[in-house]
Amino acid sequence: MRDVTMRYGSRTVVDSLLLSVKPREKVAIIGPSGSGKTTILRLAMGLERPSEGWIRIDGNYLWHVERNGALLPAGEQQARRARRAVGMVFQQFNLFPHMTAMQNVTEPLVHVLRLSKKDAHDRAADLLTRVGLATHLDHRPAQLSGGQQQRVAIARSLALRPKVMLFDEVTSALDPELVGEVLNVIRDLAHTTSMAMMIVTHEITFASDIADRVIMFDHGHVVEEGTPDVVLRNPQSPRTKQFLKAILER
């Protein structure tokens, strides 16, 4: 992402952001509500088109094409090509309510990756088992707890084997007792996978466990960034100190 700015009307939510995530790197983004952290992920997923700047994922520009060394604006087709490398898990799970857990995972596999029904089924069963839902394959989202739904959503994104996974406050909508099971799945994933991850979260301990780099974001700007040891345990910026204090004293 380079010089990415996002405005809604006269409000600038993300201002001239320069952010690059290396392969395998796990980046945690923290910051107060309304600071624009979620917008960063939505921009990276291609759900929003930036007002300015460009985004490149795994060699493909999201909203541009390169011709003779110049960047030209491009449309939805180019965006779809770039989105292939990205997966996203949402705060509200967004499972498809009319499909079973299994179908939620297999339908994109069949439709997007053109897998055979059997291959899709095998891959989905394997992933759902890994997130601890082997016995719930045929349940509808409404029959699952929030934590279970979120784990299906994680499996659904993983199944497409993206190079970057985006997690947008994935535990914020969960009952406190269900937060652990979801964080554990992501923690395991972070330690075993070669995927890059961008994680927006309010779970500070979790962020320090898995992140290679932590970014403190506020009012559309990066306030501070560095290793968890620096940003979370020994912050330099007064704004970060104040934010962490408020969160830890909650």
Partner: peptide, 14 residues
């Protein structure tokens, strides 16, 4: 819900 469309876009569904 809008999230349904967004999830579908994120999964690269046509």
């Amino acid at each position: 819900p809008k999230g349904q469309t967004e999830a579908a876009i994120a999964l690269n569904l046509s």
